[in-house]
Measured scan of single mutants.
Amino acid sequence: EIRVRVEKDPELGFSISGGVGGRGNPFRPDDDGIFVTRVQPEGPASKLLQPGDKIIQANGYSFINIEHGQAVSLLKTFQNTVELIIVREV
């Protein structure tokens, strides 16, 4: 597990896919977790996150067994800083 802090400027600078009942993700199709799919170059998350990172927690909210829409809404709700716990396959 890796813990990262992303400062919104003005957005977080990454996209996610997956989630329960979602269209899945390109990295682990059998896993309904939330995965980072795109990281904006030079964006707030560019040095912190990589495509394929699985987000398991954001600001204390579990991202395990969460629906895609709910994950997106939560990330939009947070002000300024988001603390993520991620799992990265090496």
Rank of each mutant, 00 (worst) to 15 (best):
residue 1 E to M: 10
residue 1 E to C: 06
residue 1 E to L: 06
residue 1 E to D: 05
residue 2 I to M: 08
residue 3 R to K: 13
residue 3 R to T: 12
residue 4 V to W: 02
residue 4 V to P: 03
residue 5 R to T: 15
residue 6 V to I: 15
residue 6 V to G: 00
residue 6 V to Y: 06
residue 7 E to C: 13
residue 7 E to K: 15
residue 7 E to Q: 12
residue 8 K to C: 09
residue 8 K to V: 11
residue 9 D to P: 03
residue 9 D to L: 05
residue 9 D to G: 13
residue 10 P to N: 06
residue 10 P to K: 08
residue 10 P to C: 03
residue 10 P to G: 05
residue 11 E to P: 04
residue 11 E to L: 07
residue 12 L to R: 01
residue 12 L to A: 05
residue 13 G to P: 10
residue 13 G to E: 00
residue 13 G to F: 04
residue 13 G to W: 03
residue 13 G to N: 03
residue 14 F to T: 00
residue 14 F to C: 00
residue 14 F to Q: 01
residue 14 F to W: 04
residue 14 F to S: 01
residue 15 S to V: 08
residue 15 S to E: 12
residue 15 S to I: 08
residue 16 I to C: 06
residue 16 I to H: 00
residue 17 S to F: 02
residue 17 S to L: 09
residue 18 G to Y: 01
residue 18 G to A: 04
residue 18 G to E: 04
residue 19 G to N: 05
residue 19 G to R: 05
residue 19 G to Y: 04
residue 19 G to T: 04
residue 20 V to E: 07
residue 20 V to W: 05
residue 20 V to C: 10
residue 20 V to Q: 11
residue 21 G to Q: 06
residue 22 G to P: 08
residue 22 G to E: 08
residue 22 G to M: 08
residue 22 G to C: 09
residue 23 R to D: 15
residue 24 G to E: 09
residue 24 G to L: 10
residue 25 N to Q: 11
residue 26 P to E: 11
residue 27 F to W: 11
residue 28 R to D: 13
residue 28 R to L: 12
residue 28 R to C: 15
residue 28 R to S: 14
residue 29 P to R: 13
residue 30 D to Y: 08
residue 30 D to V: 09
residue 30 D to H: 13
residue 31 D to F: 03
residue 31 D to Y: 03
residue 31 D to P: 05
residue 31 D to C: 06
residue 31 D to G: 06
residue 31 D to W: 03
residue 33 G to E: 01
residue 33 G to N: 03
residue 34 I to C: 02
residue 34 I to K: 02
residue 34 I to L: 05
residue 35 F to R: 04
residue 36 V to Q: 00
residue 36 V to C: 02
residue 37 T to A: 11
residue 37 T to Y: 11
residue 37 T to N: 13
residue 37 T to R: 09
residue 38 R to M: 15
residue 38 R to W: 14
residue 39 V to C: 05
residue 39 V to D: 00
residue 40 Q to H: 12
residue 40 Q to C: 12
residue 40 Q to P: 05
residue 41 P to T: 13
residue 41 P to L: 06
residue 42 E to D: 15
residue 42 E to G: 15
residue 42 E to H: 14
residue 43 G to P: 02
residue 43 G to V: 05
residue 43 G to K: 11
residue 44 P to G: 09
residue 44 P to R: 06
residue 44 P to E: 04
residue 46 S to Q: 09
residue 46 S to C: 15
residue 46 S to E: 10
residue 47 K to V: 08
residue 47 K to L: 08
residue 47 K to G: 13
residue 48 L to F: 15
residue 49 L to F: 03
residue 50 Q to R: 12
residue 50 Q to N: 12
residue 50 Q to D: 06
residue 51 P to E: 12
residue 51 P to V: 09
residue 52 G to R: 04
residue 52 G to K: 04
residue 53 D to N: 00
residue 54 K to D: 02
residue 54 K to W: 03
residue 54 K to E: 04
residue 54 K to H: 05
residue 54 K to G: 00
residue 55 I to K: 02
residue 55 I to F: 02
residue 55 I to W: 01
residue 55 I to Y: 00
residue 56 I to Y: 02
residue 56 I to K: 09
residue 56 I to D: 02
residue 57 Q to F: 08
residue 57 Q to L: 06
residue 57 Q to V: 06
residue 58 A to C: 11
residue 58 A to E: 00
residue 58 A to I: 03
residue 58 A to Y: 01
residue 58 A to H: 00
residue 59 N to T: 01
residue 59 N to H: 02
residue 59 N to D: 05
residue 60 G to V: 03
residue 60 G to I: 02
residue 60 G to D: 10
residue 61 Y to N: 10
residue 61 Y to D: 05
residue 61 Y to R: 13
residue 61 Y to S: 09
residue 61 Y to M: 15
residue 61 Y to V: 15
residue 62 S to G: 05
residue 62 S to Q: 08
residue 62 S to L: 04
residue 62 S to V: 04
residue 62 S to N: 10
residue 63 F to K: 00
residue 63 F to S: 01
residue 64 I to H: 11
residue 64 I to G: 07
residue 64 I to T: 12
residue 64 I to C: 14
residue 65 N to W: 04
residue 65 N to E: 13
residue 66 I to S: 03
residue 66 I to A: 05
residue 66 I to P: 01
residue 67 E to P: 12
residue 67 E to W: 07
residue 67 E to S: 15
residue 68 H to A: 12
residue 68 H to D: 05
residue 68 H to S: 08
residue 68 H to Y: 12
residue 69 G to C: 12
residue 69 G to E: 11
residue 70 Q to N: 09
residue 71 A to C: 05
residue 71 A to K: 03
residue 71 A to W: 00
residue 72 V to H: 08
residue 72 V to E: 13
residue 72 V to R: 10
residue 72 V to K: 13
residue 73 S to P: 03
residue 73 S to W: 10
residue 73 S to V: 06
residue 74 L to E: 04
residue 75 L to G: 00
residue 75 L to Q: 02
residue 75 L to S: 02
residue 76 K to D: 14
residue 77 T to G: 15
residue 77 T to I: 08
residue 77 T to S: 14
residue 78 F to I: 15
residue 78 F to W: 13
residue 78 F to A: 13
residue 78 F to H: 05
residue 79 Q to T: 13
residue 79 Q to L: 09
residue 80 N to P: 14
residue 80 N to W: 07
residue 81 T to L: 06
residue 81 T to Y: 14
residue 81 T to V: 12
residue 81 T to P: 13
residue 81 T to E: 14
residue 81 T to A: 13
residue 82 V to H: 01
residue 82 V to P: 01
residue 82 V to K: 03
residue 83 E to W: 05
residue 84 L to V: 05
residue 84 L to K: 01
residue 84 L to P: 02
residue 84 L to N: 01
residue 84 L to A: 02
residue 85 I to P: 01
residue 85 I to N: 14
residue 85 I to C: 09
residue 85 I to K: 14
residue 86 I to Q: 00
residue 86 I to W: 02
residue 88 R to A: 02
residue 88 R to C: 00
residue 89 E to Y: 15
residue 89 E to G: 13
residue 89 E to N: 15
residue 89 E to S: 09
residue 89 E to H: 07
residue 90 V to C: 14
residue 90 V to W: 15
